[in-house]
Amino acid sequence: MSADEDGRIHEDLLAQQAAFFESYFKKGAEFTRELMQETQRLRTRLAELEERLSDQDRANELEQRYQQIERENNDLAALYVAQSQLHSSLDSAEVVQVISEILLNFVGADRFALLMFDGKKALRPLLCVGLDEASVPGSLLGNSQVQRIIDNGGFTSSTSTEPRSDDEPLGIIGLGSAGTTFGVICVWGYLRQKASVSELDCHIFDLISKSGGLALQASRLVGEAQARTKSKPSDGPFERFSHLIGK
């Protein structure tokens, strides 16, 4: 092989090498560009997904908030109805009936008694629902929970609705007005489908303790006042009220 041929072969090889490298780097550049485009596409997609996830989180949060507001709204409606019904009558029998209906229909209590102190300071059942008078434990005044409610007013309630084997009530609601407790409601049982005592149930117990006691007291006073009223059937509200305020 001559030196010329050697030189041509060498130049050809160099040219081939240069072409190879040029092609290689072009492909490399093209691949890098595609990778960068893909990276950008994935970044955009990631941002979209993050935004969507964030929207979903917000939607879930709003949904939970909506459910909570709905619950509060329903609880308030139940309390409003209970409150308005408690003060819808000045007849003692009707007030007792309303208290009974609230406990049965709003709370789901189906074994309870409304007891009041008699002249000998003993608790006597005025109303029994789901049990007869003979079933009401005679030793309620010896019960520390009942005594605590009588002393302090208010209510106490177990969170469970399972009936207890002893005579211990599941719920005790004090009935009173002006700081004096004149009776209690003891709950011994709930409807079978009631799983637990809810926050609303406790609000209703509190309402009965405060407003129920007041409504009962008011109805008693009205009843007694009517029994000895000096007003005549022809009297209007002025005549009926005026002697009550000393006019």
Partner: peptide, 15 residues
């Protein structure tokens, strides 16, 4: 027949 229950149902329906 119970005014208490009736009121509660009416309130529920008004929702």
């Amino acid at each position: 027949d119970s005014p208490t229950m009736r009121q509660l149902l009416l309130y529920a329906l008004k929702r």
